[in-house]
């Protein structure tokens, strides 16, 4: 489904990704782990088409189609979804309006009729229950005054509504307490499907206890230095990144946000 070949990307002339190769098939769940500054968030942002990052060489295709030719919104409509690490607030725009606009943009792209407010309300209420959010929050401004946990649940709810082909979860576990982590994980597990791939980006292995990946990759210094199965994450937890000869502090990743 997703194929990344020798991907190089930089921000403000500083190279962050230095030759990424990755193949993800439909139905698979991949986890990308790595220390701060390894390029994890950059990879998520580049896949979603954030123009703050410049792709200097390499290619990315989604089901054979060249993603690099597409604008952010076009990629989204082709089925790329990014759950943000730090979801931004949009004051005064109700969550309901925002979500309905997004869902209708996708539907228009597929040639389906728009959902009216009543139809959408019904759908949104159902989905909000899946991530344990009070439907009353639909009327609040997008992420406005949401707690960290609510923001993350809101991101997963959007994935459930938009039904993407590839869901990229950027540090979805950060800032969550154990109960919230469980709720978010249930939401993500509900997303798992034969025709959908999931790419999780995380610093810690604890998320992988809840969402069990098929493959684990370790990213360091802008390259994937090791790939394996579920057990690789456990080994990392036990032995730390130092085991792979990686220093757990570099630079630049934080600039992705």
């Amino acid at each position: 489904m997703l194929s990344i070949k020798n991907l190089h990307a930089s921000v403000e002339d500083k190279e962050i990704l230095k030759g990424i190769n990755l193949e993800i098939k439909a139905g698979e769940v991949h986890a990308i782990m790595g220390p701060n500054g390894s390029g994890k968030s950059t990879l998520s942002q580049v896949l979603a088409g954030n123009e703050a990052f410049e792709v200097t060489s390499g290619e990315i295709t989604l089901n054979g189609e060249n993603l690099l030719d597409l604008e952010t919104e076009e990629r989204a409509r082709e089925g790329i979804f990014l759950a943000f690490q730090y979801p931004v607030e949009i004051p005064g725009v109700s969550n309901l309006q925002f979500l309905r606009t997004a869902v209708n943009a996708m539907r228009a792209h597929r040639g389906e009729p728009e959902m009216n407010a009543a139809e959408f309300m019904k759908l949104a209420k159902e989905v909000s229950k899946q991530v344990d959010l009070d439907p009353a929050f639909l009327k609040r401004g997008v992420n406005e005054g949401f707690s960290g946990g609510e923001k993350k649940r809101n991101e997963i709810m959007q994935a459930l509504l938009l039904q993407p082909k590839l869901a990229i979860l950027d540090e979805t576990d950060s800032g969550l307490d154990i109960d919230a982590l469980q709720v978010v994980s249930n939401g993500v597990n509900a997303l798992r499907a034969e025709d959908r791939a999931i790419l999780m980006v995380t610093h810690y292995q604890r998320l992988l206890n809840h969402i069990v990946p098929d493959y684990v990759h370790v990213l360091a210094g802008g390259k994937i230095v090791k790939s394996g199965g579920r057990e690789l994450a456990l080994e990392l937890e036990e032995r730390g990144y130092g085991w792979l000869g990686i220093k757990d502090e570099e630079t630049a990743d934080s600039s992705a946000n």
């Binding site: 979603a48 088409g49 954030n50 604008e71 952010t72 919104e73 989204a76 409509r77 790329i80 979804f81 990014l82 943000f84 979801p87 931004v88 949009i90 004051p91 005064g92 725009v93 309006q97 925002f98 606009t101 997004a102 943009a105 996708m106 792209h109 401004g141 997008v142 959007q158 938009l162």
Partner: peptide, 23 residues
Amino acid sequence: QMFLCRQRGIEPEQAVSMIVNGF
């Protein structure tokens, strides 16, 4: 804000208008 809206498939013009209307 723009990136969030566009990542959800919303056209840039529509995103600005939505943000301004919210304001």
